[in-house]
Design a binder for these strands. Structure first.
Lengths: 151, 151
DNA sequence: CTCCTGTTGGTAATTTTTACCAGATATAGC
DNA sequence: GCTATATCTGGTAAAAATTACCAACAGGAG
C-alpha cells in the first residue's frame, strides 16, 4: 500500500518528471536521501513504470488523429491474441482498450496526415483477420490530454 | 521544422525521459553541450511541453476506468465553453477529445472504484448543463497506453 | 574572398546524484 | 514494560551530471 509520502512523490513526479531529487525532497518535506530511496523503491516496485518527455503533437508534425471503434467477428483466443499483438506493435496506435459497449475496442491513433491515416487503415487495420467493423471518429480538437493519475 | 537530430532526441526522451544528457548526447551522436542546447531549444519552443513519471494505474489504486461518449443538446459557445472548462478541471478526466461521429466528445476517466465512478457521473457529468447523453464504456483491459508519438 | 550567422565541441565551476554510515523510530515477542 | 529486530531517517562525501562560457568551424550572401 502506498503511504502518504509516496503519493506526494508521485504527484510531483507526474507533474515534473525531471525535477531534481533535491527539489522533490524539499517539496515532500524529506531529506534528499530518504526521498531518493523512496523514489527508487517506487521504481523497483513497478509503481513508476518509466519517465517520458511529453511532446506537442502538432509541433512535432502529427496533424491527424482519431479514435477508432473496433469490433471483431469472433472472439476466439486466436483472433483476439492476433489482434492484440498486431495492434500493440503499431506505433501509430497510442492507446488501445478493450471495453464494454457496442465496440469491442477503442483505439487512439496518431499520424502525420490524412494520407497516412488512410494508409494505416488500408494497409493495416482492414487487413487484420476477423474484424467486424472499424468506425473512425476523427479528433477535431484535443480538449485535454493528461497522463497524471488523479490522486 | 524539426531536424533529424531533434527527432532523434525526441524519440529518446519519449522513451527515457530521465536519461542523462551525457547518455542522450552519445545516443544521438553529439557533444554534451550541443545536445544540451538542442534539448533546451526544444523545451523553449514548446515542442517538449514537459516531463512526466508514468505511474502504474492499478498499483496506484485506480482500479476503474472508462471511455465516455458524450453529446450535447446544443452547441452554442455558451454550452460548449462551459463543458470544456468544467471537464478540463476535473482530474479524473485524463483525456477529452472533440470528435466526428455519433458522439460529440470522447472522454477517458480514471477513478479508484465503481463507487467513485458512480459519484463522478451523479455529482459531475449528469449535472453539466446541456448534455444530451453520456454513454459509458467500461475499460475491461488496457491493451496499450503509450505517450510516445510515432516518429 | 570576406563578413555574418548559427552551430559545434571542449572546459570548468557549480549542482546533483548516490552509496554509506550512525542514530532514531517502530514493531513483535516475551 | 522491555528488549531484540527490522526499518526508516538525516547527514556526509565521493562521483557524476549540469550548465555557462569560450574559441573554432561551417555554410550562405554579398
Amino acid at each position: 500500500m502506498l503511504e502518504k509520502q509516496d503519493e506526494h512523490i508521485l504527484v510531483q513526479l507526474q507533474k515534473e518528471g525531471r525535477t531534481t531529487n533535491q527539489q522533490l525532497a524539499e517539496d515532500v518535506g524529506m531529506s534528499t536521501s530518504a526521498c531518493w530511496r523512496r523514489v527508487r523503491a517506487l521504481e523497483e516496485a513497478g509503481v513508476i513504470t518509466g519517465y517520458s518527455a511529453l511532446v506537442n503533437r502538432e509541433q512535432a508534425g502529427f496533424a491527424t488523429s482519431a479514435i477508432l471503434h473496433v469490433s471483431l467477428e469472433r472472439h476466439d483466443a486466436k483472433f483476439v491474441d492476433e489482434f492484440v499483438s498486431r495492434v500493440t506493435e503499431r506505433a501509430e496506435v497510442l492507446e488501445c482498450f478493450a471495453t464494454t459497449g457496442d465496440a469491442d475496442y477503442h483505439l487512439r491513433v496518431v499520424v502525420r496526415d490524412m494520407k497516412a491515416y488512410n494508409a494505416f487503415l488500408d494497409e493495416f487495420m482492414f487487413r487484420l483477420p476477423g474484424i467486424r467493423y472499424v468506425r473512425t471518429n476523427v479528433i477535431l480538437k484535443e480538449i485535454k490530454t493528461s497522463v497524471a493519475l488523479p490522486f
